[in-house]
């Protein structure tokens, strides 16, 4: 793979290169957290040193919270023509790129979801490695290092970044920015790189032992702790909103007042909501909160392996810091392990 160097003194020129490819989006502070937001001024593009966990993951670019999927008239359904801007997303951590790879797989398996694809091809991913914080556990989910799924990937080695080129688009960027991306990557860079990797590996502190969890999900299916969690759960659905691999959506039709037209809207849904498994005639396949929690963890830790060969938890730690009542991968695994 092609590796280049970007000197930190040239970092402030990065925006000018990226903006030629599309809108630039990067983490910006919001309260005590961060969100991916559109960067309008070059000085607002900040490559944070620490691990940045935005409130919502990058799935919001690929399958927006709310999306108009069809316009209709009494005798016609039509896909709306929308101009999707190209967006360069800067500062995407490895675990989120893993999540993106999972989404790619999910949205192309069996049937291709065109709404996803149309947005996916308009997204340029500039990944960035950073030292973990106390909630990140991607080292336990094998998602702390990323090999594919990005266009460019930055590793901070002090005075400079090593820049991995992961795609054609990535290559276009470094070619256009040839005055700041240097091909002069001497062999002794490897030493710094190894030292960084080692430092990063040791910096992970969150210890969630996922070994054997798949079987435990099966064995502990009727365990009492599910009911205890069910009693605690607020059914707020935040866990599913912030999870980078949660994809469920609901669909609703709306008509315009006094017009013979309307639109079909798709928006994020949550399996924590009561109506999630409700069918005609008011039969609910998952009436209790405990059943719905079980569904989520079955899907994350067990079922996804059956479908795609790996669990769909990427260890980003969002559920840990988001759930107000501490029902998260950590506490569930703790209970599973007894």
């Amino acid at each position: 793979m092609r590796v280049l160097k970007l000197s930190k003194k040239d970092e402030n020129k990065l925006y000018d290169v990226l903006i030629k490819f599309g809108e630039v989006w990067a983490p910006v502070p919001k309260g005590s957290r961060y969100v991916f937001d559109k960067i309008e001024k070059k000085e607002d593009l900040i490559m944070y040193n620490e691990f940045i966990r935005t409130i919502l993951p990058i799935k919001k670019f690929l399958m927006p919270q709310e999306l108009n999927i069809l316009n209709f008239k009494p005798s016609k359904y039509e896909k709306p023509k929308v101009d999707i801007p190209t967006r360069v997303i800067v500062g995407v951590p490895p675990c989120e790129i893993h999540a993106l790879n999972i989404l790619d797989k999910f949205y192309t398996t069996d049937f291709v979801d065109n709404y996803y694809m149309e947005r996916r091809e308009k997204v340029i991913i500039i990944g960035k490695s950073s030292l973990p914080d106390e909630y990140l556990f991607s080292h336990k989910t094998n998602t702390s290092i990323v090999e594919e799924g990005y266009d460019l990937f930055f590793i901070d080695l002090g005075d400079y970044y090593l820049v991995w080129v992961g795609s054609e688009k990535g290559d276009d960027i470094v070619r256009l920015g040839s005055d700041i991306f240097s091909e002069d990557v001497p062999v002794d860079v490897a030493k710094d790189f190894v030292a960084y990797r080692e430092k990063r590996r040791k910096a992970f502190t969150k210890d969630i032992d996922l070994e054997g969890v798949t079987d435990l999900m099966e064995l502990m299916y009727d365990a009492d702790f599910w009911d205890e969690f069910g009693e605690k759960c607020l059914s707020c659905g935040q866990c599913t909103m912030v999870c980078p691999t949660c994809t469920c959506f609901n669909v609703i039709d709306e008509i315009e007042l006094n017009k013979d037209e309307g639109h079909r809207r798709r928006y994020w849904d949550s399996c924590m909501f009561k109506d999630y498994s409700l069918v005609a005639g008011q039969h609910n396949f998952r009436e209790s909160r405990a059943e719905r929690l079980k569904l989520w963890y079955t899907h994350k830790l067990k079922a996804f392996i059956g479908h795609f060969g790996s669990p769909s938890c990427v260890g980003c730690g969002r559920c840990i810091i988001t759930c107000p009542v501490d029902i998260n991968v950590e506490t569930v695994v703790e209970k599973l392990k007894g």
Binding site: K30, G31, S32, R33, V35, T54, I55, L56, K60, Q65, E66, L234, S235, C236, G237, Q238, M241, V242, N250, I252, Y267, W268, D269, S270, F273, K274, D275, I321, T322, P324
Partner: peptide, 21 residues
């Protein structure tokens, strides 16, 4: 209606959870 709590749209708008605050 969606039969979902305020939290759904609150998260759509990418707010920090005020309960956690």
């Amino acid at each position: 209606y969606t039969n979902s709590p305020v939290c759904l749209e609150c998260k759509f708008r990418e707010n920090e959870c005020l309960l956690n605050d």
